[in-house]
Amino acid sequence: MDLSYVARILPALLNGALTTLALFALVLPLSLPLGFLITLCASCRFKPVKWLAQAYIFIMRGTPLMLQLFFFYFGLPFIPVIGPYLRLTSFSAAALSFTLNYAAYFAEIFRGGLLSIDKGQYEVSHVLGLTSFQTMTRVIIPQMIRVTLPSIGNEAITLVKDTALVASIALPEILHYAKGIVTRDFTTTPFIVAAFIYLLITFIVTVLFKFVERKVNYE
């Protein structure tokens, strides 16, 4: 592999990596709280809310992310009356569909996390006089985070790679640029460089999550 060639194509690929990083930095912090909210709704005693949340999870997990991406980018403007006002930029459509999709997965991860917490934790909190909100924020969520962190880290890495899908709605990111250069120069080098950029990002994400996992480990 010619290093000077790599140096020439690198700026374009790194430019694409910015899109990946921007999406990641937006989607992860938005989808986590949304996912937790959906978990709470899915276990709500008021049946319609529960059904709505369960239907949401079913639809978002049961259809391809690419289809959802198309829906928010190409589909929304076709909705009668309000459609013309729903013309999103490709970045907004990508951020929106990724957030809504990942929230559904996080909701299921959090549900598992909540199930793993002993009911004695709720009981002792009640007996000690904590409100439901205090019990949730000071007792349950800290324990849930520790249990779910490995799965959340897994999803975070998937998210990095899923950003490659946005090439399909003409939002330029790493793979989009790589493919362009491959077609132009008849060489697979850009793909290899792209792979290394993805690996670098996922490596950083892995290290970050390992660090946070150590921080919240209380054994």
């Binding site: 002993d118 004695g120 934790q121 009981e123 002792v124 009640h126 007996v127 006089g129 007792v139 800290p142 324990q143 520790r146 919240v216 209380y218």
Partner: peptide
């Protein structure tokens, strides 16, 4: 009324994260 009583459980129910 509940706060006037304390309870000790069979499985302790300590907060493991604190």
């Amino acid at each position: 009324i509940v706060l006037n009583m304390g309870m000790v459980f069979q499985h302790f129910n300590l907060y493991p994260h604190l």
